[in-house]
């Protein structure tokens, strides 16, 4: 077991090292400001952290991400469960769902900014509108797949509503909600940067646009690195442990 773990971390380190070497070679070979070597990016990264600029903009983006993610997940789960359980409602709103799923993200952003002004709430609304249909579709599927036998058992033994939700429904929905969480975080990351680029004066998206205009590739890569690190941390510290706890009963 520990051998296996050791070799996997060695492999991870090795793969990272190979990546950095390739990058370095390519940078030397191209020899252009558009592809700085890893060490230059690391320097820029460190300076951006020391100056407080990177933490500030990353923090702003993370805050927007958290708020819009929570709103989208709560609303999306509620609507998804409702549509999964109620055939009439599902029939009524199925078309809406397909329309909202396919509205280009850029269109909803522009419309939000036009209708509600270049404000914080318009930015968050734009992200939420893009995210909700995805959550609804996934959670609706999960609700349709709920095991009727277990629901009958719960009714027969007079489980309270809370008990049914906690012990019968939630464990069955969990994989679907985790899928919605993962795909949702990935989606929101991508959308939120464009939202910031279009209509905010801070955040990662705003900064990246600035660096683009200055052709400052080292800063773009440094910010990207910060960004990837945060995503990995969320995966390792939040999602993986949650998964492990919920799935412990599986063989």
């Amino acid at each position: 077991m520990s051998n296996c773990k050791l070799s996997s971390s060695v492999l991870n380190a090795l793969s990272l090292l190979i990546f950095l070497c390739l990058w370095q070679l390519l940078a030397v070979w191209v020899n252009s400001v558009t592809l700085p070597p890893p060490i230059a990016v690391a320097k820029v990264f460190w300076q951006a952290i020391l100056s407080g600029e990177l933490p500030y903009h990353l923090g702003v983006t993370l805050l927007r991400l958290t708020i819009s993610f929570i709103i989208a997940m709560l609303l999306g789960c509620a609507i998804g469960i409702l549509l999964g359980r109620n055939k009439a409602l599902d029939g009524l709103f199925d078309q809406w769902l397909i329309i909202f799923l396919n509205v280009p993200a850029l269109v909803s952003m522009i419309l939000c900014y036009v209708w509600f002004g270049l404000t914080e709430s318009a930015a968050i609304l734009a992200v939420v509108i893009n995210k909700i249909p995805n959550v609804v579709v996934t959670v609706r599927e999960g609700t349709r797949a709920l095991n009727q036998d277990l629901s009958e058992m719960a009714r027969c033994y007079r489980f309270s509503k809370r008990k049914t939700l906690q012990h019968v429904i939630w464990p069955q929905l969990h994989p679907y909600i985790m899928a919605a969480t993962r795909s949702g975080l990935a989606l929101i990351w991508k959308i939120i940067l464009v939202v910031e680029l279009l209509g905010r004066s801070n955040g990662m998206g705003y900064q990246l646009n600035l660096f683009f205009q200055l052709f400052d590739v080292a800063s773009i890569l440094a910010y990207t690195f910060a960004f990837i690190t945060v995503v990995q941390l969320i995966e390792w510290l939040v999602l993986k442990p949650l998964d492990k706890k919920q799935q412990r009963w599986r063989r």
């Binding site: 036998d149 277990l150 009958e152 058992m153 027969c156 033994y157 007079r158 489980f159 008990k163 012990h167 019968v168 464990p171 919920q246 009963w249």
Partner: peptide, 26 residues
């Protein structure tokens, strides 16, 4: 309400709860 104990044809246990928890939940 009369309390009903129903032994279904298939066991209908909650797979994510232990044997003991399955019994106590009822």
């Amino acid at each position: 309400h009369p309390k009903i104990g129903y032994v279904f044809q298939n066991p209908r246990l909650l797979p994510w709860r232990t044997v003991r928890e399955n019994i106590e939940l009822a």
